[in-house]
Design a protein around this nucleic acid. Structure first.
Lengths: 150, 150
DNA sequence: AGATTTGTCTTACATACTAAGATACTTATC
DNA sequence: GATAAGTATCTTAGTATGTAAGACAAATCT
């Protein structure tokens, strides 16, 4: 009993520390590109989701359209993304990540990506499957709590 | 093989999503207190570590002394912390969280704390122990990567 | 005692956000 | 097809939060 409770309490504490450390990493990673955290997040959205309009970017980042204009300005200035008019709807602006330029950059995620891959490689398939399920649940749970706060 | 690789790839993706969701939660949680993310983090540091000087707070938050002055100003203004001169060293300012005032607030962490506790209660003791070890490793690993970027 | 160091605050400035509205374009209605 | 309404982005003004540099008070070290 006390054993389990102890583990659960420790896990709660570790979760909070993990969140803090993760935030700090993102900040440092962005800084080594000369960008802010939001800009980095935008780049990530563009790389995952492909070219998108400024409006899509705004909803993905929970920003106003004005803020997105600034984000895209900075990314374009750094040569990490391109902005071009949409042929179909000329009000729209399509923003695309410049994958070649990003690959030529400091590549800050390589190190952490490799480190986690070797950590995961040392785990059993059962443990990996458990982690996937657990992480999915914790994400869903956190999303619910975000909605509860809104 | 492909099975394992698939799990590992999925885990990497989930890790990134988890980081994003966590950051979003922190932002919303801070906002429901009428604070910024940094202020909330400062409050957390004060609750965990007890009363501290402005300088200690600055290093814990990776902020300049000037920024900390602003953080403490805001916390005091909201009645969530107190600032008083250190009797021993009168240059110092001791900042303490006002636990009663915080408890009387919206208590945004209650929900997520409960949710995780029930999730963890459904796990076996072995799974809990594994999670503790894994999280500790991932924190250490992330901290190493932060140093590598500095 | 005098010089240096330390801890906090002040000031000036930079950055990044929101809010509100301007502009340009598209879609719907008559 | 003209007019009205809606949509997507950008602009501008104001606010918040950070850094950098230095002032000031208090402690520490010859």
């Amino acid at each position: 009993m006390s054993d389990r409770d102890d583990l659960i309490a420790r896990l709660a504490d570790l979760g909070a520390r993990s969140a803090t450390v993760t935030a700090l990493f993102q900040q440092k990673a962005a800084a080594s590109y000369g960008l802010g955290v939001t800009d980095m997040k935008a780049l990530d959205v563009l790389m995952r989701g492909g070219p998108q309009t400024a409006g899509q970017l705004a909803t993905a980042l929970s920003l106003t359209s004005g803020a997105v204009t600034g984000v895209v300005d900075r990314l374009v200035k750094h040569g990490l993304a391109t902005r071009e008019a949409d042929a179909g709807d000329r009000r729209r602006v399509l923003v695309a990540a410049d994958l070649a330029a990003i690959a030529a950059g400091p590549n800050v995620y390589q190190g952490i990506s490799d480190a986690f891959r070797t950590l995961h490689a040392s785990l059993s398939t059962e443990q990996l499957a458990f982690l996937v399920g657990y992480t999915e649940q914790s994400i869903a749970l956190t999303e619910q709590q975000i909605d509860a706060l809104s």
